[in-house]
Amino acid sequence: MEKTIRKWFMVWDFEKEEEWLNEMALSGWVLDGVGFCSYHFSRCEPGEYTVRLEMHPQDEPYLQFMRDTGAEYVGRMLQWIYFRKKTTEGSFDLFSDIDSRIAHLNKIGRMLSLVGAANLIIGMANTFSPARLGWVNLLCATLLMYALGRIHGKKEALEKERRLHE
């Protein structure tokens, strides 16, 4: 049995997205594929899988490394990749220290800045074009900058922690 759920999460809510996917797995629906704002599930035993996601560029050696540790690659949506692992094969986490969590947030931050800057430039260029569609890009740039701020806030909290713990 399969089902598809349309849902979307803000980029700074990636932990909530992961939480939701794990709640689905606990209720017997495991992530089987991802699309744009859509999630495909198939039936599983409740709690059979742990699901994890992260922003990571195209990187075949990494996927192979993950498979070697017993994780299954579920799919990719833009820069986000999704994994799942059977709970019987042991605990499953992507990051186990503060440093690598900060590195992950930096990766997200860099992506947001890049896309944000591109929208800003396109937006300004198009403001003076006859089509007058520049505002769309400027709006996107504003949203992306806001997202960057949220990610930065998360990073600062971790950095504060990092001063005392590793």
């Binding site: 992260e54 990571h56 990494y62 490394f65 993950m66 070697d68 540790t69 017993g70 994780a71 605990s91 499953f92 986490d93 992507l94 990051f95 186990s96 220290d97 440093d99 690598s100 992950h104």
Partner: peptide, 24 residues
């Protein structure tokens, strides 16, 4: 890699669990 994860967990008596992304 997987051997490193298992050995770390064994050496530390289960206290330190290296996550795959962190290890990579």
């Amino acid at each position: 890699g997987y051997g490193i994860m298992q050995q770390t967990e064994a050496l530390s008596g289960g206290r330190v669990r290296l996550a795959a992304g962190t290890l990579y």
